[in-house]
Write a protein that binds this DNA or RNA. Sequence first.
DNA 1: GCCAACGTTGGC
DNA 2: GCCAACGTTGGC
Length: 149
Amino acid sequence: MKTEPDTFGIDDLARVKLEPWSGVRNFQARNLMRDEMRVGDEVLFYHSSVAPPGVAGLARVCRTGVVDQTQFDAASPYHDPKSRREAPTWICVDVEFVEKLPRLVPLEELRGMAALADMPLLRRGMRLSVQPATADQYKRIVAAARRRA
DNA sequence: GCCAACGTTGGC
DNA sequence: GCCAACGTTGGC
């Protein structure tokens, strides 16, 4: 899951412990949260729009089928006037803090890892804020962070 | 700040 | 349903 640390980063998640992943307004990303994620799924917490971008920490899906309340909030930048309460358009998940990695694993380093060649994150033009990763990719990134802390 | 990539919007 | 225009994302 990608996030801009200036807005909400791993330190913010560490502080609040649990956060509804609201504000996602892309159907593909919503479908991943709504249809693919399960309680207990491990999450790579990725910091974007900073130098350097990279995986900063770990989180976990702790609730699924969460109605994104910002869609009904007229004052929110994520307000969606077309969405109805009886059939909400935007469904997300709650994520809980697991840990801040001992070091940020930069995007550049991820690009250098052969085992990650197929990760959507590394594809050109990939902007999705929620993306799948395999268990193997997850383990390798965590291992890289611990190997050279 | 630039710009490539890509999603969304809206005219037709 | 097509597609050009536009807006956003996000690395650099």
